[in-house]
């Protein structure tokens, strides 16, 4: 059964937002408040969770570049990877300026989009 069938089609987006996006995310914050005293930051379990979280966030970045949606999908893979690499190189060379990373990365993608006649 889909959300459109359970709720009305007009309400489905809000029910989905609450149950699919908000609830599975917010539960961690509620847990944090409830058990904040139980776990220590340096414990092995917390260290492992941090490692999994870092790898997962890396995965979020990788999949948005490997299998993008929208206009980005119309550019070849090597351009998308190249633009991310150029942006991160600028970040390193500029002593970690986020602005430098974003300007160079976006300029590379937009330049390539212009070249490919998007």
């Amino acid at each position: 059964m889909s959300f459109e069938e359970i709720f009305s089609p007009a309400l489905a987006p809000y029910a989905m937002l609450a149950l699919v996006a908000f609830a599975p995310s917010e539960i961690w914050r509620v847990l944090a408040v409830l058990v904040a005293r139980g776990l220590s930051e340096g414990s092995e379990f917390v260290t492992w969770v941090q490692s999994v979280a870092t790898a997962l966030l890396t995965g979020v970045v990788a999949t948005t570049v490997l299998t993008p949606s929208g206009a980005l999908a119309q550019l070849p893979l090597w351009i998308r990877l190249g633009a991310l690499a150029i942006g991160l190189a600028a970040y390193g060379l500029s002593r970690r300026s986020v602005l430098a990373a974003i300007i160079t990365g976006v300029a590379t993608v937009s330049g390539a989009a212009w070249f490919y006649g998007l």
């Binding site: 970045v61 948005t64 929208g70 991160l88 974003i102 976006v106 300029a107 937009s110 390539a112």
Partner: peptide
């Protein structure tokens, strides 16, 4: 589309700089 493609790269770029900034241990 030229601008749209560029804007779509901002989120992955911004998140990767955040990941890098918070990475301290070899792990």
């Amino acid at each position: 589309p030229i601008l749209a493609a560029g804007l779509l790269l901002i989120a992955p770029l911004y998140f990767s700089t955040n990941i890098i900034a918070s990475a301290r241990r070899p792990m």
